[in-house]
Design a protein around this nucleic acid. Sequence first.
DNA 1: AGCACGCCGACT
DNA 2: GTCGGCGTGCTC
Length: 806
Amino acid sequence: MPFIADVIVDVPAMQTDQPFSYAIPESLTELIEIGMRVEVPFGNGNRHIQGFIVGLTELDIMPNDLKPIINVLDLHPVLNEELLELADEMKETTYSFKITCLQTMLPSVMRSSYKKYVTLLDNNLPEKITDELFLGLGEIEWDIAKESPHFSELLELRRDGKVDIRYEVTTKNKVKTKRVIKKALENSELLLEKEKTRKNATQKHRLLDFLMEIDESEFSIKELLETHDITRPTINEGHKSGWLTIEEREVYRNPYAHHQFKKDTPLKLNEEQQLALDKMKVSMDQEKSDVFLLEGVTGSGKTEVYLQAIAHVLEKNQTAIMLVPEISLTPQTVTRFKKRFGDDVAVLHSGLSQGEKYDEWRKIERKEARVVVGARSAIFAPLENIGLIVIDEEHEGSYKQDETPRYHAKDLAIWRGKYHHCPVLLGSATPSLEARARAQKKVYQLLTLTERAVSKAMLPQIDIIDMKEEMKQSLTTTFSSTLLEKLKSGIAKKEQSVLMLNRRGYSSFVMCRDCGYVLPCPNCDISLTLHMDTKQMKCHYCGHEERIPYRCPVCDGDKIRYYGTGTQKVEEELKELLPEARVIRMDVDTTRRKGSHEKLLAQFGNQEADILLGTQMIAKGLDFPNVTLVGVLNADTALNLPDFRSSEKTFQLLTQVSGRAGRGEKAGEVIIQTFNPEHYAIELAKAQDYEAFYQQEMRLRHQGNYPPFYFTAQLVVSHEEEHLAAKKMYEIVAFLKKYLSEGAILLGPTPKSVARINKRYYYQTVIKYKNEPNLSNGLKIILEESQKEIRNGLRITIDMEPQHFI
DNA sequence: AGCACGCCGACT
DNA sequence: GTCGGCGTGCTC
């Protein structure tokens, strides 16, 4: 009975976002399985593209209008049943194409690239074709032919059947191999060979001696060349003489090959940690898909709880995923896992090359690693029998992908938890309001760690410096006198300092340097953004606009200025003010090169510098016991972004970075410089009182109808013509209103803060809602209806629960 | 997406 | 009269 295959093809478009049926040729019937990648013909001409098998159906009679599958790209399925189901979930919740979801789940090397060639069929063509166009070759690339002046003649030749067009589907997932030798003769025979060999052929003797020494094991040729002083020709001779065999073996590119990980043992847990672990164990043993929120102050030993919980699932022969924000997936973090679980760990993050990522992925797929540590996309790790999923720094916005498919790793983690009947553990010192509120409502189970784990370590002393006061006395706005004093005395005591320059966000704002006043929107609880293009202050939520003030509306001062600084500038200033200080600067510029992040941190760890100066990337996860001082140069930048999460982000960042101080036995100290010393996010960060912050912020969110009291969805329309983008946005909103209840709140349409990017104009609308059963339908119809206009250059994106509103 | 088909303006 | 412009429709 013939089978037909349902294939999702690599054409990300609405009309092709469905399975297409293909005939399975006889030769492939035994090989083909659901979840494999295939090469299929698609459309007119003879175009070949990649596709995924998502179904196999047995039919009595083969419909005769089906095209056959050309080729199978995998030996084993690359997506199992669970991941295929997860792709459906993603498609539904993120409003994206199935093919995009499927490709997102796999290492990028498995995505096919396409090439089109023109092949010469008739050799008796005029010279200008064979020589000038085909350059004497039998085949050339289509893209090259297209540029040729003879291109139009080529099209004629094609009609006459004198040239053919060939499509190539290539995929870069190459396995790396090494060549190994193995002895082919018994020692007695080798001894005979040795006697036959000339006395002065020292190389050959050495090789024979070596072969007699090794038993049946394999030896890599590379190793032989490097360590046994035997040359390649000698090995080849030995091969020819039949002394040894040479074979190809697959190897993994191991990014940690040169690291030695000394096995460590579980640390003794304190009472709180033990209690948290015990509660988790109950859930793990009863195979419950509970979600836990582990709220633990910085340095309270959350990681140790993760490690021991993971150890518990490994004991039960299950597997585990541990997600870490990209920014804190530092060598320190990786080392900690490698030390505990050794080769059982696979690491997936953006620092790896495509090949390395593929190898780590294959290691997981082949069940050679049971613990996966990685950034957002590691949630797609092809593990089976998952016993626990951990998401560290749960509050981090980077768990949401900010391009299509706009999935949130936390949602997918909870989905996989349900699928595997296993718990999900969310950890943070400063939980997101959403997570903390769910814990309040007992949707998540709350576990708390209130003490630092190292016995003597205390939470650091935090001081706030009012930069408005500071401004009156000194000329520099970067360093307060207090901070400079502390830095100096730190150097004198041979202790280290961390300085953070907060540069979160990129829209500029204006602030009064006398009183710290930032222009708010009269309709929303956020600040206005400066738009230099239109010379106006704008609100991104309601569209309110007003003139740029030249005097402060509150204190009438005229020191109202733009705000913003860079790390380089600070480094220069630091050199002038503290010439004796050795400074390491860490920002996107100094860490772009592979491994430089690691190198800089190692230098700092080896006391090769007194001060580590950096952006947010130094706020997380670093654990240097000799750091006793943390300085935040400008706590305000995040505070003034027109985003309802700006206070939350500021509080989180200040808490995280403060946590870098006093992790060893010496007490830590934190200096926060700000123009808004009385802002609750800053005051409560000083008090290190997350719970108070949570209460306060919840009140404000409630007043403003923001999450976690409301859900949010963002619609963005863009077009090269501003009025077309605006017009469409208004049409969509008018249409969508029919699908919304009275309770839904619409913010907009408004132009986006960066109104024009790449010559395109962006308009947005934010929907705040509680319960809108028809919203999803309405959005789907909008996407479908807008199909025709995509050709005219219109683009529409839907972002459910967006993380950034700028 | 990308390819073919089809219907209107400026060329040998 | 035709070459080629890009609007439209379809892809198993």
